[in-house]
Nucleic acid binder design. Structure first.
Lengths: 109, 109
DNA sequence: AGGGTTAGTTACTTTTCGTAACCATAGGGT
DNA sequence: ACCCTATGGTTACGAAAAGTAACTAACCCT
């Protein structure tokens, strides 16, 4: 069967891709440069590059080049990206209400 | 650096694990059996089993065994799981507003 | 004993991730 | 002209996770 709404399925596919949520969270606080995000997230350059390309392709992230010295490239959210704010906010609220510090510190199993 | 709230990071890790979102969506419509979910989702038994175990371990999903013939096992959401409803709902809304049918039908690139 | 029914598990291949080392562009210093 | 530095990536490769299909376990029925 599998009669899920294909648009919902697509949205889930994008949002639930690993690291995408954290990247969106970073960008909701304003535009960021590649190296800032690399330092601020537990993710390496290879995957950050990959995810930013994906999000740009999906129209969620914009890439702005400033030809200064040294070159500055800023990533920011489009309208489509900003519209994801409620999703991130709800996840924050849920984490606040239901995730205990024990769960976080405990070993994986 | 990486000074994200560890509880938020943990929440994101759970929710953004592949297929978890779709599984939660299914269970928000009420308890479901293993075979129902397998049929209703684009996911194979191996991974469904895996994810249900993960979600049970995280206290999001409950597993109820009914010793009938044939044996019936139902999965349902705990309070912690039900509390994720707003997240799923926001994703649905976002998909409705921002995902076009073209994006869904188009080849992957 | 043999077969049907549900709920998984195992074995194996393909894809994606994660880490570290490397490359490209461009301005500045000497 | 030459090298140095900074930013923003890319490449290469071993490890982990996903995907697929076939198999198993428990239980009842005939």
């Amino acid at each position: 069967m599998n009669d899920l709404c294909p648009r919902f399925e697509k949205a889930m596919e994008i949002i639930s891709k690993r690291w995408v949520g954290l990247i969106l969270f970073e960008l909701l606080n304003g535009a960021k440069r590649f190296s800032e995000m690399e330092a601020g997230l537990p993710i390496s350059g290879r995957l950050l590059s990959d995810r930013l390309k994906l999000l740009e392709k999906e129209g969620i992230v914009k890439r702005n080049i400033y030809s200064e010295f040294p070159v500055r490239i800023e990533y920011s959210l489009s309208e489509k990206g900003k519209a994801l704010e409620p999703v991130i906010k709800d996840i924050q609220d849920w984490a606040h209400d239901w995730i205990t510090m024990q769960e976080v510190t405990e070993p994986k199993a």
